[in-house]
Simulated scan of single mutants.
Amino acid sequence: MARNTYEAWIPEEDSSEVIQRVDQMSAVEALASPESMSSNTKSIPRSAGVGVAVVDKGGAYSEDTSTNDDIVLTAKKLGKAIRIAEEDIDDSLANILATKQKDWATSYAKLLDNATLAVSAAPGAGVPFASVYYTLTQTDAALGYTANDNVTVAASGGVTYNNLSDTLGDVEGGDYFDLSRTVVIAHPSFRGVLRTIKDDQGQPVFVQGQGGDRGTPDTLFDLPCRWSLGCRVSATATDAPTGKPVLIVANADYLRLGRRSGPESIFIDGRDGLSALTDESILKMRARRAFALSHPKAAAILLGV
């Protein structure tokens, strides 16, 4: 098999299997509002809205007093180095590099969703972003939000119709509700539970979509559902979370995903440098992303059992 040596990071093309796998596996990459970043940080405005009042004929217009501020997105690098024996590259009939790239894409998708949606700790070591879960468990007096206002916890008996209704109601009752942009993101373990829940008329609240990714999506109370293996609570960002499953209802416009670069890769040939002593080549893959929930009242969480 021919071997190529690259001297720079090679970005994945939009049609590549890596990008397709990421879009398929990551709810955040697929649904969040994207922000292009040309530097490590980017400040984006957060408007507090504009009021409207009745103006009498010939009367003076009252001035809006809403307070505006901004959010700073800071890009963090999510990556991995993969060491591959030259014999595996030379002897394998399959393209082992392409296989490893797709495997990385799967793990990256789960890690990104976990880091942005379900990590319980503040940003720091092993925690790149303030996740939706973390944000909703903190008080933000400036925004008029009290810790856990938009968090519903299922009892030990399991998720109920009222749990789901309360979670949606937390978003629907606020100023940031937009039916056309509201989405549900949940761990797949909710699927079995949701299939058993019906409303007072005996109608299922969860309807499975038809036609796969290109057909109609799964819906919960008529809202589109996306499933993410990263939606389990974790103390730090991981591609294999094991905590309680999470269901999130959010206005996707307020899930702000900064894209600095990637996914991209670089191949370091085993015949060059120190790696030449081991007959091993190194494939490095990375993506630089930033994330913020731009207003806590635009999202709500149901914590499963």
Rank of each mutant, 00 (worst) to 15 (best):
A250V: 05
L223F: 11
T65L: 14
H295W: 04
V305D: 05
L179W: 13
L293I: 03
S38Q: 12
A300W: 05
G173M: 11
L194S: 00
A252P: 00
A125D: 12
D64Y: 13
V207Y: 01
G230W: 04
D218C: 07
S275F: 13
K76R: 13
V132W: 06
C231Y: 03
E280G: 01
L117D: 02
V153L: 05
G144Y: 11
L274F: 06
A121K: 08
K77W: 02
D88G: 14
G258K: 00
S47M: 12
A105Y: 02
Y161W: 10
A186G: 09
A290Y: 01
R271V: 03
L223I: 09
S92T: 11
I82C: 08
S15G: 14
Q20A: 14
L31E: 08
T67H: 05
D279C: 07
D113R: 02
A250D: 00
L136E: 00
I84P: 03
Y6W: 13
V22I: 15
T160N: 10
A240N: 15
A240D: 15
T41S: 08
A60C: 05
N114I: 08
K297I: 06
V233E: 15
A141R: 04
I301C: 06
G202V: 07
N95V: 07
G144T: 14
D178G: 12
T236D: 10
A240V: 10
A27K: 01
K76W: 01
S62W: 10
D239V: 05
G243R: 01
I82T: 14
I197F: 05
S131E: 04
V171I: 12
G243Q: 03
T242F: 02
G211S: 08
L111W: 02
T196S: 09
D170N: 13
G304E: 05
G58M: 08
Q138C: 00
T236Q: 15
L78A: 14
R256M: 05
P217I: 09
T137H: 14
G51Y: 04
F190D: 03
N95H: 07
A154T: 00
S43H: 09
N163P: 00
T137Y: 08
V153D: 03
Q20T: 08
L274Q: 06
M1L: 12
A75E: 00
F129M: 03
I268T: 07
G192W: 05
T152H: 01
D218T: 09
Y6R: 07
D14Q: 14
